[in-house]
Amino acid sequence: MKLTTQKGMVIWMLGLSGAGKSTLSDLLETQFQTENIFSIQLDGDQLRKGLNKNLGFSMEDRAENIRRAAETAGIMAAKGIVVICSFITPLNVHREIAREILGELYFEVFIDCPLTVCQERDVKGLYKLAGNNTLKNFTGISSAFEKPENPDLVLLTESQTPQQCCDHLYAAVSSRITQLQFS
């Protein structure tokens, strides 16, 4: 049984730590609430504290982290929920896992921000730890990040405000939700 009459989808926001994924996720969820769109956030940090706490940061564990997140998001989207995902998702092969699981429900958003700006923001202090070799396998420093090959949307958080980015994101997602309603 569906929870709502709306069509679900998965907005998969990816990018480096500090790029603005969580900020945009919060803003988008607030906008959805204003528009009475039923949504939920899945954040990489939250899932690693619970569902995925047994996973490390090897490439195999990163792939499993994304697989579990995509499976969870897919279950919710099938019930009519718009799921806002915030995961670094460092490699194209990881994105392909999510895309394969979610199919037409998957909407990929690259939160594009230069590494130097992410390092300046460093709200969690992770870049400093990675730079001191205290934190191993950190994406962008000691572990690879591949720019996505063909995202549905690219948001430039260095040159646009969070609200401007959210406005672009909301417009693109609203169009996609409308397409799904009539498919």
Results as ranks from 00 to 15, higher is better:
residue 152 D to H: 15
residue 6 Q to E: 11
residue 50 G to F: 03
residue 16 L to K: 04
residue 103 G to D: 05
residue 160 Q to P: 02
residue 109 V to C: 03
residue 178 T to R: 11
residue 79 K to P: 04
residue 120 E to V: 05
residue 140 G to V: 00
residue 15 G to Y: 08
residue 96 E to P: 01
residue 114 P to H: 05
residue 75 I to T: 04
residue 93 V to C: 07
residue 103 G to L: 01
residue 119 Q to L: 03
residue 12 W to M: 08
residue 53 K to C: 13
residue 41 Q to V: 14
residue 36 N to K: 12
residue 82 V to W: 00
residue 120 E to Q: 14
residue 105 L to S: 15
residue 103 G to M: 02
residue 181 Q to N: 15
residue 31 Q to H: 07
residue 118 C to H: 00
residue 61 D to Q: 02
residue 176 R to G: 04
residue 14 L to T: 14
residue 99 R to S: 12
residue 25 S to A: 15
residue 53 K to W: 04
residue 148 P to R: 12
residue 58 S to C: 08
residue 77 A to Q: 01
residue 14 L to K: 03
residue 83 V to N: 02
residue 127 Y to E: 10
residue 35 E to T: 03
residue 103 G to S: 03
residue 98 A to N: 01
residue 6 Q to G: 11
residue 159 S to F: 08
residue 43 D to M: 09
residue 78 A to V: 05
residue 13 M to A: 11
residue 92 N to H: 05
residue 166 C to T: 13
residue 146 E to K: 06
residue 161 T to H: 02
residue 128 K to W: 06
residue 181 Q to A: 15
residue 120 E to A: 14
residue 67 R to E: 13
residue 144 A to M: 10
residue 80 G to F: 00
residue 116 T to Y: 12
residue 44 G to W: 03
residue 133 N to L: 11
residue 136 K to C: 01
residue 119 Q to F: 04
residue 125 G to D: 10
residue 73 A to V: 02
residue 138 F to P: 01
residue 33 Q to P: 02
residue 132 N to F: 11
residue 114 P to N: 09
residue 20 G to V: 04
residue 175 S to I: 06
residue 126 L to F: 12
residue 67 R to L: 13
residue 70 A to L: 11
residue 47 L to P: 07
residue 140 G to L: 00
residue 108 E to C: 07
residue 81 I to E: 06
residue 94 H to I: 03
residue 2 K to V: 06
residue 41 Q to F: 04
residue 22 S to D: 06
residue 50 G to C: 05
residue 90 P to A: 02
residue 43 D to Q: 08
residue 125 G to S: 11
residue 166 C to V: 05
residue 155 L to G: 05
residue 13 M to L: 15
residue 143 S to N: 12
residue 33 Q to Y: 10
residue 69 A to K: 04
residue 91 L to W: 05
residue 115 L to T: 01
residue 67 R to C: 10
residue 38 F to W: 13
residue 172 A to W: 00
residue 158 E to C: 03
residue 38 F to L: 15
residue 172 A to S: 14
residue 25 S to H: 01
residue 43 D to F: 07
residue 105 L to Y: 12
residue 50 G to S: 11
residue 26 D to R: 14
residue 10 V to F: 00
residue 73 A to R: 01
residue 45 D to I: 09
residue 70 A to R: 09
